[in-house]
């Protein structure tokens, strides 16, 4: 649910990084925040525990500048991945325009990924949305670790809707901007279709 203001000439869209705990959602935002020029980004807000686990959400606003006279902004959010923060995850999804589902590629996290994907669908439903109506991409993260499942294996199990999928090493920035570009374009495409 984007906010389009014809008077102040602004378009604001909400993109959410969803996925299981310790999968790399916050790492994606931190990398984007570190690398993107100051004139494009706003202040990053993190509501985290003392051990830097996301408690409520991270927030990073990005601004495209003027596109056909409209200041176009993407507000990036992460949800807390840990299972017991489900109530918070549901709240963050309100008004979502696009989702990046971040997968932890390690074999031992496979069930957690599947559970998180199902949980996302349930929480979308609770907000009155259907995943079918929301642009989303998948990011297979931590590709540098030794015990990862193959891209094909993961994609077959998780990418049921055949959406764009990317391999990443978020901590080193590999695949982070490819993912961001893909979801931003899908969100804009959805807006222009209406």
């Amino acid at each position: 649910m984007a906010l389009i203001n014809y008077s102040s000439r602004e378009i604001n869209c909400k993109i959410i990084y969803y996925g299981c705990g310790l999968g790399g959602k916050t790492t994606n935002l931190l990398y984007i925040h570190e690398k993107i020029p100051d004139n494009i980004k706003g202040k990053m807000v993190s509501l985290a525990t003392e051990t830097d686990r996301t408690l409520f959400f991270d927030f990073l606003p990005l601004e495209l500048g003027s596109v056909h006279g409209f200041k176009t902004r993407f507000h990036l959010y992460t949800v807390p991945g840990q299972v017991h923060y489900d109530a918070s995850r549901k709240l963050i999804l309100k008004g979502v325009d696009g989702i990046v589902f971040v997968v932890d590629s390690q074999r031992e996290r496979f069930d957690d990924n599947i559970e998180s994907f199902e949980n996302m669908k349930i929480n979308l439903k609770k907000n009155g949305y259907d995943l079918k109506d929301i642009p989303y991409v998948i990011q297979y993260n931590k590709r540098d670790l030794p015990n990862v499942m193959s891209f094909e294996e993961l994609d077959k199990a998780i990418n049921v809707d055949n959406v764009p999928a990317f391999e990443s090493i978020a901590i080193k920035g590999v695949g982070v901007f490819e993912t961001l570009k893909a979801i931003s374009k899908l969100v804009i495409a959805k807006l222009s279709k209406k």
Binding site: I4, Y6, L64, G65, F70, T72, F177, K185, S192, K194
Partner: peptide, 25 residues
């Protein structure tokens, strides 16, 4: 209405160009 005036395919193309230009390292 689901206001559609400004957000057309031309807007989409320009926005995509900006995304490619700005969202990179």
């Amino acid at each position: 209405e689901e206001g559609e005036e400004a957000i057309d395919t031309k807007f989409q193309t320009s926005a995509e160009e900006e995304i490619d230009k700005l969202f990179r390292e």
